[in-house]
Design a protein around this nucleic acid. Structure first.
Lengths: 187, 187
DNA sequence: GCAAAAATTTTACAAATGATAAAAATTAGT
DNA sequence: ACTAATTTTTATCATTTGTAAAATTTTTGC
């Protein structure tokens, strides 16, 4: 997916604004297992995934909670870094080797103050993500483990192909053993 | 809490922008149990709570999942309405009689396009809410029911005073019976 | 292609939480 | 203040999910 489409999918930007935004964006390539954001660090970076897959997880050391997957077309940020310039609660690592575009978020902050279209682009990005997480929080609570797995099979079968089951289990809020039990029961 | 402080707490606005925003804001008073947003409806409204308490819940009819509480200083929206102009997945009702300020969000959308400060105000609002929900989703998964209750006691004891336990239980992702059991075990 | 590592499944058991129903306590309305 | 309605607690039992460890399968690196 091309960077122009990724940007416009979030919120269509006029050419001038897009050019401004792209001034500080450059391509990066990282191998599988590379870490983009490390927990408890402040990074002034944002990435757009042109090719590949990443995951965000919290609580490393203790137990990893995978709470987000990113793939082609997604923007990758560590929320606390991005929003509050504070230490992130998550680690974000590559699940596949990736082609991405990197953007400096300090630069982005300046653009938010100068360009109303980019400000609204940033607004839309946060708003869309917000809805996704809120729906996920609700959904998590009112469905059983099996329902959650079935729903994922129905809505995002690709994820099951590309991501190992241990991460899927965590993402669905269950243990790997539980997921395995559910999968075998469905056959 | 005064409307000026509520607005500035989200993101400090210059006087001119604040005046623009306040042009279409007016005071409303509703009694306990009044419904601000009904599930599956589109409402072009947003509220700021000066006094009182509200809750948002999803899945009415089947089982209510309380996923958000709002009190003095909070902004109240139905996310799908607000962001995508689509039917909301939640119902929002008053838990106490409230003094609020009502804002038309169609008007707000125009302001987003015209005033960069207001656009950034909207961005900040979504971003802050996003972090809260994301942290809640993670926290929910890596703590036991008792840990979640203890955490709430520590971080927001006021909520336990003002809101009935059935709603608290749902908010914490457990049944009321479970919460009651936990409470009695702590004595 | 083979050995080592990693991921997944399986099994057995334990613990936490849910469902249901009923009693007790609290709150609200007249 | 009294009754009805609502909320909270208690008790019992069923079920889901987690933990731990071993067996199996798949993936990876040389």
């Amino acid at each position: 997916m091309h960077i122009n489409d990724i940007i416009d999918n979030i919120y269509p930007l006029p050419e001038k604004s897009k050019a401004l935004l792209k001034e500080n964006i450059y391509e990066v390539n990282y191998p599988k297992a590379h870490v983009l954001f490390k927990v408890n660090r402040i990074e002034s970076k944002m990435y757009f995934i042109e090719k590949g897959m990443v995951r965000a997880y919290a609580n490393p050391g203790d137990e990893e909670i995978t709470f987000w997957f990113g793939k082609e077309g997604d923007a990758v940020v560590s929320m606390k870094n991005y929003v509050q310039n504070k230490k992130g609660y998550e680690t974000i690592e590559l699940l596949e080797s990736c082609v991405m575009r990197e953007l400096n978020t300090e630069h982005l902050r300046k653009l938010f103050d100068d360009d109303i279209h980019i400000a609204n682009w940033g607004r839309k990005f946060a708003e869309q993500e917000l809805i996704k997480v809120e729906e996920r929080l609700i959904f998590r609570q009112c469905r059983t483990a099996m329902e959650r797995y079935k729903e994922l099979m129905a809505t995002d079968p690709e994820l099951l192909q590309r991501v190992q089951l241990g991460h899927i289990a965590s993402y669905l809020g269950m243990t790997q053993v539980s997921l395995s039990r559910i999968r075998s029961g469905l056959k």
